[in-house]
Amino acid sequence: MARAFKVRSAERDAQTDRERLGSISAAIEAAVASIEKERDALRARVDAARDQAAFATGTDYDEYLTRDAKDAARIKEYEQQMATGEKRTQELDRQLGGLNAVREAFNQYFAGKAQ
């Protein structure tokens, strides 16, 4: 004896869709939040390194001529930190742009379905 064909209820389908799409939305939002947190903290550290380098550089126009080797090495280290930090910040901004595009596309196709 053949069993009659049955489909799930509309409520169950809607719940399944919300769960499935909600996990995708949550993953996108978590990644965006993580990138923003890292980028903001990194920017603060780069700004602090810039301030420290400016302080170590001094204010006299010819101070670089008589600068102590220890201070010169410290300034060079700050410059390296700033360059590395700026490079990473650019990468994080690139990732954030990509994830924002993914979020926009997701919302365009699944708006209101992932709750």
Rank of each mutant, 00 (worst) to 15 (best):
S25M: 01
Q52W: 03
G98T: 01
D51L: 05
A48D: 15
N100H: 06
D17I: 13
A49G: 02
R45E: 15
D47R: 04
T16Y: 11
R74L: 12
K76R: 11
Q81F: 09
Q80T: 15
I28Y: 08
I28F: 02
G112D: 10
G58I: 03
D60C: 09
Y78I: 02
E19F: 09
A27D: 11
S9Y: 01
R18I: 08
A49C: 00
V102I: 12
Y78P: 10
I35R: 03
R20A: 06
R18L: 10
D62Q: 03
A48S: 05
R18K: 11
D93E: 09
T89E: 14
A49M: 01
Q115L: 03
L99N: 01
A111Q: 06
S25T: 02
V32Y: 08
F5S: 11
A114G: 04
D68F: 09
D71T: 05
Q80N: 12
Q108V: 06
G58N: 02
Y61Q: 08
T16Q: 07
T16M: 12
V7L: 00
E86L: 06
R18M: 15
D68Q: 01
A31T: 15
E11D: 14
R3Q: 14
R8Q: 14
A26C: 02
F5P: 13
A48Q: 05
K113T: 05
R3F: 15
R45M: 05
A33T: 10
S25H: 04
G85W: 10
R94S: 11
T84P: 04
R12G: 07
Y78A: 05
V7P: 07
T89C: 13
T57E: 10
E79I: 09
K37C: 04
A30R: 00
Y61F: 13
D60A: 12
V46R: 02
V46A: 02
F106P: 03
R74Y: 15
F110M: 07
Q90H: 08
Y61C: 02
A56F: 08
Y109C: 02
E36R: 02
R50E: 13
D68P: 10
D17S: 04
E86Y: 10
A33C: 04
G58T: 06
D62R: 03
F55W: 08
Q108T: 12
K87S: 14
A44M: 04
E19Q: 07
Y64I: 13
D60I: 09
L92K: 01
A41I: 04
G85P: 15
R103Q: 13
A10I: 11
A44E: 12
Q15I: 11
T57L: 06
A56M: 07
G98W: 02
E19S: 10
E36M: 03
D68N: 08
A44D: 12
E91F: 06
T57F: 06
A48W: 05
Y109I: 09
D13R: 00
R43K: 12
K87Y: 14
V46W: 03
E91T: 05
F110R: 01
F106V: 04
G97E: 00
E86F: 09
E29I: 10
R88S: 14
D51G: 07
S25W: 11
T16R: 06
A69C: 03
V32E: 13
R103F: 06
S23V: 10
R67G: 08
A83L: 11
A72F: 13
S25G: 09
D47K: 03
T66R: 00
Q52V: 06
T59E: 14
K6H: 06
K6I: 08
Q52A: 08
R12V: 09
A30P: 08
Q90I: 14
L96S: 04
V7W: 02
T84F: 11
N107R: 03
